[in-house]
Computed example of a mutant assay.
Amino acid sequence: MTTTHSASKLDSTPSLNPNILWQHLAQQALRGERLTIDEGLAVLTADDDQLLPLLHAAFQVRSRYYGRKVKLNMLINAKSGLCPEDCGYCSQSIVSAAPIPKYTMLDKETLLAGAREALSRKAGTYCIVAAGRGPTERELDQVVEAVAEIRSTMPLKICACLGLLKPQQARRLAEAGVHRYNHNLNTSRANYPSITTTHTYDQRAATVEQAKLAGMSPCSGVIIGMGETDADIVEMAYALRELGADSIPVNFLHSVPGTPLADAKRTPALKALKVLALFRFLCPKQEIRVAGGREVNLRTLQPLALYAANSVFVGDYLTTPGQAVSSDHQMIEDLGFEIELCAI
């Protein structure tokens, strides 16, 4: 992606005050027009006093496509630790010294119990996540068997996140009834080598394409707070728009002791909200999910995230705790929003 522009839309409208600018960006998004890099940077560097007008503009886009509904997702850590990859943010990586549970792929009954728990939490999507470079055939067999039974007995959408996929593996998951496949880009192409060296940015993008070719809905997102620049963040949003991701989880690094990024600074809550507004403007129709790390980065401002995002995870994450499910339900109710139940 090139970052030089001779005359951006932002440069051509210098008289716009910030309140008018945010409305201008919202209208562009609703017309399907892509923000320029300068406009994206303006969102990320907006004065903190402009946060409420900025979120109001982002909400106009969100409400066009999702109204006041919020999608809930629940994930299960189907295989923990034992991962040979060197992802610096991950407590399950081979380079991590974090004291986490380590176990092989969960059996079918445990995966089914997780699906029932997802329903009890009012989640519409159940995410089966496994650490590792990619699934073995035996692991794939276990997931396929569980998914087939879940699909035949429960009103849930299934998302799988099993690492890098071969074409035939993607087809098997789709045939079993997996609706969505998640493989995050995580960061920008330029920043990627500083985060992971055992696989490439292009391999991640290729797995998302494999999921699309197999007929699964592509899910891919980012982790904010890993040393990226504001320009990197705009590039991430551009890349996911161009990749055609239907669902975009926006994670904020929850630094874990024992990982290479243990000392990374928390993303300030106001900056995190600006990031979510940017993703809503650049990916207006997509499901934007405020995901891992929201509790420790957004803290008491979590409710404001839902003026840009339309989806959250409920419960715990892979190796870090989330807030109580009842608190998430209460947050949604207090906002005057509504949980969107699965309709399949």
Score class of each variant (00 low, 15 high):
Ser188Ile: 02
Lys108Gln: 15
Glu109Cys: 04
Pro167Ala: 08
Leu156Pro: 01
Ala115Asp: 01
Asp141Trp: 12
Thr200Phe: 06
Lys122Ile: 02
Ala174Val: 04
Met154Leu: 15
Ala148Leu: 00
Lys108Tyr: 02
Ser194Asp: 13
Leu111Lys: 05
Asp107Tyr: 09
Ala146Ser: 14
Asn186Asp: 15
Arg172Gly: 08
Ile158Trp: 07
Asp107Glu: 14
Glu149His: 10
Ala113Cys: 06
Thr200Pro: 01
Leu140Trp: 09
Arg138Glu: 14
Thr187Arg: 04
Thr200Arg: 01
Ala130Val: 08
Lys157Arg: 13
Gln203Arg: 10
Leu185Trp: 07
Arg204Thr: 04
Tyr126Met: 04
Arg172Gln: 15
Asn182Val: 02
Thr136Ala: 03
Gly124Gln: 02
Ser120Met: 11
Leu156Met: 02
Leu164Ile: 13
Ala118Pro: 08
Arg138Leu: 14
Gln168Glu: 15
Leu111Met: 15
Met154Ser: 08
Thr197Asn: 12
Ile195Thr: 10
Ser152Asp: 15
Arg204Ser: 15
Gly163Asp: 11
Asn191Lys: 11
Cys159Tyr: 05
Ile150Trp: 01
Ala206Glu: 15
Glu117Lys: 13
Asp141Cys: 09
Ser152Ile: 00
Thr187Pro: 10
Tyr181Gln: 06
Arg133Gln: 10
Ala190Cys: 01
Arg189Asp: 10
Gln203Glu: 15
Ala130Pro: 12
Asn182Glu: 05
Leu112Gly: 11
Ala131Gln: 11
Glu149Trp: 10
Tyr201Trp: 14
Asn191Glu: 09
Arg172Pro: 11
Cys159Val: 03
Leu162Trp: 10
Leu173Met: 12
Ala123His: 05
Arg133Trp: 06
Pro167Gly: 07
Asp202Leu: 06
His199Ile: 02
Leu112Ser: 04
Tyr192Arg: 08
Cys127Thr: 09
Gly132Pro: 08
Leu140Phe: 13
Val144Leu: 12
Leu156Lys: 03
Lys157Ile: 00
His179Cys: 09
Thr187Gln: 08
Cys159Glu: 13
Ser120Trp: 00
Arg116Glu: 13
Glu139Asn: 14
Ala174Lys: 13
Leu165His: 01
Asp141Tyr: 13
Thr136Gln: 04
Thr196Phe: 06
Leu140Glu: 06
Pro193Leu: 02
Thr200Met: 04
Ala123Gly: 06
Glu145Phe: 02
Thr125Gly: 03
Ala118Cys: 09
Glu175Arg: 11
Cys161Tyr: 09
Ala146Lys: 12
Arg172Phe: 03
Arg133Ser: 07
Asp141Ala: 05
Ile195Gln: 04
Ala190Arg: 12
Gly134Phe: 10
Lys157Phe: 13
Lys108Cys: 14
Arg138Gln: 14
Ala206Val: 01
Tyr181Ala: 00
